[in-house]
Computed example of a mutant assay.
Amino acid sequence: MNSSIRAAKLLHVLAATAFLFAAASAGNFDQDVSITWGGPRARILNGGQLLTLSLDNISGSGFESKNAYLFARFDVQLKLVPGNSAGTVTTFFLSSQGPNHDEIDFEFLGNSSGQPYTIHTNIYTQGVGNREQQFRPWFDPTTAFHTYTILWNPSRIIYMVDNIPIRVFNNYAANGVSFPAGQAMRVYASLWNADDWATQGGRVKTDWSKAPFTASYAKYNAVGCVVSAAGNSCNGNLTGQPWQTQGLDGNGRNRIRWIQQKYMIYNYCADLIRFPRGLPRECKLPRF
């Protein structure tokens, strides 16, 4: 059995595991989120088990979580816009409010029919981002649901796809690297038109004859420290839940190296043209 077949089988097994995890712990959109824009273009269906966002030439749509969190694990299953999705951006991200906000992004950049999506990730701290990494999916993200995870704990941020880590951003505050640790964030999701930059740098525009474009969300789940006027549900302390200290073991480090070698298409830490005076400080510290 060659290495490509073994790798494909491993990814299939890991995807099945992630699906079972999400199915066992899924929340309810009616209870957990609010439609914030787009009117009837956003719909909660199947008793709160499915949420669809649509985009046409008038408007996109979006939702946000009812709760805000200071550290948590967020999972959602997502099926992206099929066919010619050029110009569209589907998102699942965390954000605080204000000009000095923190933000942890999953953005899915559409493409022309037959071309792969781009999985775009970025992290903002105190209003400053510029920490992009981009990947190609190793599957068709439009034909079936796949699980996307943002794990945010005091030590690190881990992005996962079908429970496979694709990116880690460690808390190197002690080394002078800012880390989102002081502002509560809500979950946001949207489907919107970004044909000025999303596909091939804006060269390929949205084909409105294909509208409405629709993305589907399922099995949303958030487990973490809820912040409200009454305080923090974790009382500002670790409470022994696995996500609060989760990192990468040896297998996880091997998986993320393999994913980044095979499927990463952009890494800000390798962009010497963009940072001619030197790469950001975290790029010189251990990645995993």
Rank of each mutant, 00 (worst) to 15 (best):
Q49E: 14
I123Y: 01
N100T: 13
F63R: 05
R43L: 10
G98L: 07
G278Q: 06
S113Q: 15
A229P: 02
F63C: 11
G247H: 03
F92G: 07
T88C: 03
V81F: 00
W197A: 11
W138I: 04
L11V: 11
R41P: 02
I164H: 00
Q244A: 03
R131L: 09
P154C: 03
M1Q: 12
Q77T: 09
A194Y: 10
F145E: 08
V13Q: 14
Q244R: 07
G252W: 03
S209P: 08
A42E: 00
A16N: 15
H12G: 07
H12M: 13
Y172G: 01
H12R: 12
S233R: 05
R253M: 11
S61V: 07
K79R: 14
T52W: 06
D75S: 15
Q97K: 13
G224F: 06
V168Y: 06
T36I: 12
Q31G: 14
T52N: 05
A211D: 00
S233D: 06
N175F: 12
F213A: 00
D102F: 02
L10K: 14
Y124C: 05
P40L: 03
Y188P: 08
S178Y: 08
T125D: 05
G83R: 09
W197T: 04
H120T: 03
Q200A: 14
N237C: 10
I104T: 10
L285W: 01
I157G: 08
E103P: 07
Y172E: 02
W138K: 06
S209V: 07
A211T: 10
Y148Q: 05
A270M: 12
T149F: 05
M185L: 10
S155P: 01
G62F: 10
R203Y: 09
D102V: 01
N46L: 13
S85Q: 09
G201Y: 09
V168P: 00
Y217G: 09
P212W: 07
